[in-house]
């Protein structure tokens, strides 16, 4: 069987997946932004793993699906998690607490935001994790080139969690605010309300969401649990629970593909 992996890099988790699948006897090709051309040449593989959510990998995923080549996870699911506007309104619809969002130009923010509402978190509309994310404490820190539209969220003051899930296994870690996935984090027992949020999130996708992660903050003032970011395919670099992420994820993907055939 020939498997393609759509990934921004060939190393790290992608490299481990490739090794695992090759050891099982499969032929695996990794497509990065250096060698990915989206046309009929892609149709030579039996199925694809969508590791990265860069727009071009999503395009490739949609193209493959339209040509009846399975893509795991599904591109539309990954897109919803990559696009912060989509994920925000989805979380609201399914009843999760999530910080209010604001979009506008620098001038609009300066003229219409209330000083009492600071700080905010500035984030890219398309993205996940901490890339391009920064805290905004004053009007002067709101800047953009060409008065482009900015996306900001209300900052939630509280305990920050990085919560991984692989099938029914949940691994909860306390992390420093606004940090990326790779900083050292402290594992804790998963509280019931975090388990419930994961369950609600996965239920929306009707069993299609095999793994992923949510960033959450427990607000000091209210004790409410806010989901502040979602990710469809993290590196699992801080996974500190039982099972091996690489082995289990590859097994889940292969099982999914078998069910789709």
């Amino acid at each position: 069987m020939k498997i393609g992996i759509l990934s921004k890099r060939k190393t790290m988790f992608t490299g481990k997946i490739k090794n695992f699948l090759e050891n099982k006897g499969f032929t695996v090709t990794v497509y990065t932004l250096e060698n990915l051309a989206i046309n009929e040449n892609l149709l030579n593989n039996d199925f694809y793993i969508l590791k990265s959510k860069n727009l071009f990998f999503l395009y490739a995923g949609y193209y493959l699906e339209a040509n009846n080549i399975p893509v795991i996870p599904k591109p539309q699911m990954s897109f919803i998690q990559k696009n912060r506007i989509h994920s925000h309104f989805l979380m609201k619809r399914i009843g999760l607490f999530t910080p209010e969002i604001y979009l506008g130009t620098v001038d609009t923010f300066k003229n219409q935001l209330n000083l009492d509402d600071f700080p905010f978190i500035l984030k890219p509309i398309m993205g996940s994790g901490s890339k391009g994310v920064r805290i905004i404490r004053t009007y002067d820190e709101i800047k953009s080139e060409n008065n482009t539209i900015l996306y900001m969220e209300r900052y939630i003051n509280g305990i920050h969690y990085n919560v991984y899930f692989i099938d029914n296994e949940i691994c909860t870690l306390i992390k420093p605010p606004l940090s990326h996935e790779h900083v050292d984090m402290k594992k804790i027992e998963t509280p019931d309300d975090i388990r419930n949020v994961i369950q609600k999130w996965r239920n929306y996708f009707n069993g299609e969401l095999l793994f992923g992660h949510l960033d959450m903050v427990r607000e000091d003032a209210s004790n409410n649990l806010f989901t502040v970011d979602v990710g469809s395919f993290p590196e699992f670099s801080q996974w500190k629970c039982r099972i091996s992420p690489v082995d289990r994820i590859c097994e889940l993907i292969l099982k999914k593909y078998e069910n789709l055939k």
């Binding site: 925000h88 979009l103 506008g104 130009t105």
Partner: peptide
Amino acid sequence: TEETFLLDSS
């Protein structure tokens, strides 16, 4: 108008 409207999700 996009350039003058503040979108507030609340």
